[in-house]
Simulated scan of single mutants.
Amino acid sequence: MAMMPDGRADAQVLRGHDTTAPVDFSADRIEVQDRADRVVVTGNVQVTQAGLTLTAQRLTVAYHDNNGVEIDRLDASGGVVVTRGNERASGSVAIYDLNRKLITMIGNVQLNQGGNRLTGSRLVIDLNTGRSTVDGSATGAPGTSTSPGGRVSGTFKVRQQPGQ
C-alpha cells in the first residue's frame, strides 16, 4: 500500500480474482422482479465467487437474459464486507460491476491487507489489475459519511529485524 501526494492511497488487492466464475448467493429472502431484470436479496446476504465473499443486509442483482441469466451488477448495502484470504474491505454501500470488473465501496470505507489498514470515504478495486484506490472524500450515497477532514488514513506494518 502506498500514499499518493494527492491524498489517495493505492494498494494491490484481490489480484487474480476470476470475475467469470459462477456467483452463488444466499439470504433470508429472495424476490425475483423478472420484468425489471433484477433480483432483490435481503437479510444476512452472502455472495461467493471464486474465493471472494461479500456479505450485506441487502443486495440488488441486475441481470440480462441471453438464453440464460447473466449477471451485470451487484448493488449491496448495509454493513458491506468483501473478503478473500487475508484481504478485507468494508463500507456502507458497494457496487460490483461484473462487466467492468470494478468494485466500488462508499461510506466509512476500511481496507485491510494482512497487518496493513487504510480508511477513507471511497474505495475502488479494479479486478483487472488488482489495483485499489482509497479516497478521503467522496460524493457519497445517502446515509454515508466522509472520513474526518476528507483525508485517507492508514497503518502500515513494518518488517521486524531478527532479534527485535
Rank of each mutant, 00 (worst) to 15 (best):
A56T: 05
G16S: 11
L102D: 03
T19Y: 02
V13D: 07
A141N: 13
N86F: 07
A89G: 05
V61K: 09
E87F: 03
R151L: 10
V80G: 11
G140C: 13
A89K: 05
T48S: 09
A27M: 05
T60F: 01
V152W: 00
R15A: 14
R159F: 05
R8E: 12
P148H: 02
L52E: 09
A36G: 01
L98F: 08
R122K: 14
L98D: 10
P142N: 14
G85P: 05
Q46K: 15
T55W: 03
Q164D: 09
I103N: 04
M1T: 12
V82Y: 03
D126L: 06
G140H: 05
L52H: 07
R131S: 10
R35D: 15
P148Q: 04
I106C: 11
V39T: 12
L118N: 02
A89H: 06
R29N: 11
E31S: 11
P148I: 05
T133W: 00
P142R: 12
V81G: 12
M4H: 06
D24H: 14
K157Q: 14
T129K: 04
V134F: 00
V39W: 00
N66D: 15
F156Q: 13
L14K: 08
G7A: 05
G149E: 10
N99F: 00
T42I: 15
G120C: 10
Q161K: 14
Q49W: 05
T19P: 00
V40M: 07
A36Y: 06
R38C: 00
M105G: 04
A62S: 06
T104G: 01
R122G: 00
E70I: 11
A141K: 11
Q164L: 05
A56P: 02
L52V: 15
G51Y: 08
T60I: 02
G149S: 09
V158F: 07
A62P: 00
R29I: 14
G154C: 04
G78K: 09
G163M: 06
T155P: 00
R88W: 04
E87R: 07
V69Q: 15
N66H: 12
D34F: 02
K157V: 10
G143Q: 10
Q164C: 01
D97K: 07
T129W: 04
V13F: 09
V47A: 03
F156T: 12
T104E: 11
I125H: 07
Q161R: 13
G91C: 07
D37C: 05
N66S: 15
N108Y: 07
Q57E: 15
T133S: 02
T20E: 12
S132A: 15
Q12R: 13
V152N: 06
R117E: 14
Q113R: 15
V40T: 11
D97Q: 03
G107F: 10
D75S: 03
M105D: 08
L118I: 01
A27K: 00
N86M: 14
V80S: 11
H17T: 13
G7W: 13
M105I: 04
S132T: 06
L127C: 00
G154V: 02
G43C: 01
N112Y: 07
G114F: 03
N99C: 00
S132H: 02
T155S: 13
D72K: 09
V124L: 10
Q12E: 12
T83E: 15
S121C: 01
E70F: 00
I125N: 11
A76F: 06
D65N: 13
T55H: 02
